[in-house]
């Protein structure tokens, strides 16, 4: 990531890719004294038009806190958050922002049309109602009360609310959680289209495969700090490429010293190695223990790669 220090006071001045929103070494802690929880630590983040940025991390990693600071729900304890060059709590900044939270508690007795009208009214140049309804797949549901809708339909209403103001930046907190495979695929396609239309799209997810397949840029967060970021290819390049398993008596300590081995672990009779390439490790293994059996070599799942990244962090701490 580049560390541009340009001024964002006038975004219309015509920078090639103005920053829509950014966090500048933002930290957030909750509570005080012994009960202090450091949710996010020195986080740098920027979102540009036309990009789909995935904030990836396990539950409790600080993704929602990061989103909260970016959207002005919560103020950083230290550092800064900027939205369209302003404080994110500035109404003028929010007029260009659409957010889909993991919302609950939408009034059950308001109709879809009423909900969309309410939110469209907040924006100076909202998307026409008919366009919101079509874009969110709500045709024919306008007159229904929110409480009468299915879970998927309710999600679509929230999506419609996000689009209502025709925002330049769209932020989605865990948008695909609880969706079936098909709905998830549909949503990703929609988000891709939104980014292609020149808007900035940020989302949080803990589905690594999704982020890998769809995002332009991934920022991996764990325990409140960025542990990796870049294009999906760059991220994957940072994690071991092969997983070797074998039944052997070789100890973890010995295996950890072999060339290329990022991490060795033992599970009963099984030794497991995460390594950049399999061959040097295999050679070392069979040299030391010719009787090793059940040898398999596999590509680690993205889930495992992700796990390797996050546990490396833990070890380094």
């Amino acid at each position: 990531m580049t560390t541009t220090q340009q001024t964002h006071d006038d975004l219309s001045a015509g920078h090639a890719a103005p920053v829509l929103a950014e966090l500048l070494s933002a930290s957030k802690q909750f509570g005080s004294g012994a009960a202090t929880v450091q949710a996010v630590r020195g986080l740098d983040l920027e979102v540009r038009p036309g990009e789909l940025l995935a904030l990836l991390g396990p539950n409790g990693a600080g993704k929602s806190t990061a989103i909260g600071m970016l959207t002005g729900l919560t103020a950083p304890t230290s550092g800064r958050a900027r939205l369209f060059g302003r404080d994110p709590r500035d109404v003028r900044a929010r007029r260009r922002l659409g957010v889909m939270l993991q919302a609950s508690g939408v009034p059950q007795t308001l109709r879809v049309r009423e909900l969309l009208t309410e939110f469209r009214g907040y924006y100076p140049a909202p998307l026409p109602m008919a366009q919101v309804v079509t874009a969110a797949g709500l045709d024919g549901l306008e007159g229904r009360m929110f409480g009468e809708l299915s879970g998927g339909q309710q999600r679509r209403v929230l999506f419609g609310i996000t689009l209502a103001g025709d925002p330049d930046l769209l932020v989605f907190d865990e948008p695909t959680t609880g969706l079936d495979v098909e709905a998830r695929r549909g949503l990703w396609a929609t988000l891709r289209d939104l980014a292609r239309s020149g808007r900035g799209v940020v989302l949080t997810t803990h589905y690594l495969e999704e982020a890998d397949a769809q995002a332009d840029r991934i920022v991996v967060i764990d325990r409140g700090v960025v542990i990796a970021q870049g294009t999906p290819a760059e991220i994957k390049a940072q994690v071991p490429g092969r997983r070797v398993r074998a039944q052997t008596s070789v100890s973890v300590a010995v295996a950890n010293r072999w060339p290329g081995v990022a991490r060795a672990s033992r599970e009963g009779p099984w030794l497991e190695l995460l390594t950049g390439s399999a061959e040097p490790a295999l050679r070392a293994l069979l040299d030391l223990d010719p009787h090793a059996t059940g040898v398999t070599v596999a590509e680690p799942s993205l889930e495992e790669a992700f796990l390797a990244l996050t546990t490396d962090m833990e070890a380094a701490r």
Binding site: A125, A135, T190
Partner: peptide, 24 residues
């Protein structure tokens, strides 16, 4: 779901003002 065309991605300061009374 489909995507709205990029109608007003460059909404400038000349955008019509929201009506506070209407919101209330």
């Amino acid at each position: 779901m489909t995507t709205p065309a990029a109608t007003a991605t460059t909404t400038g300061t000349a955008a019509p003002r929201t009506s506070l009374a209407r919101i209330f």
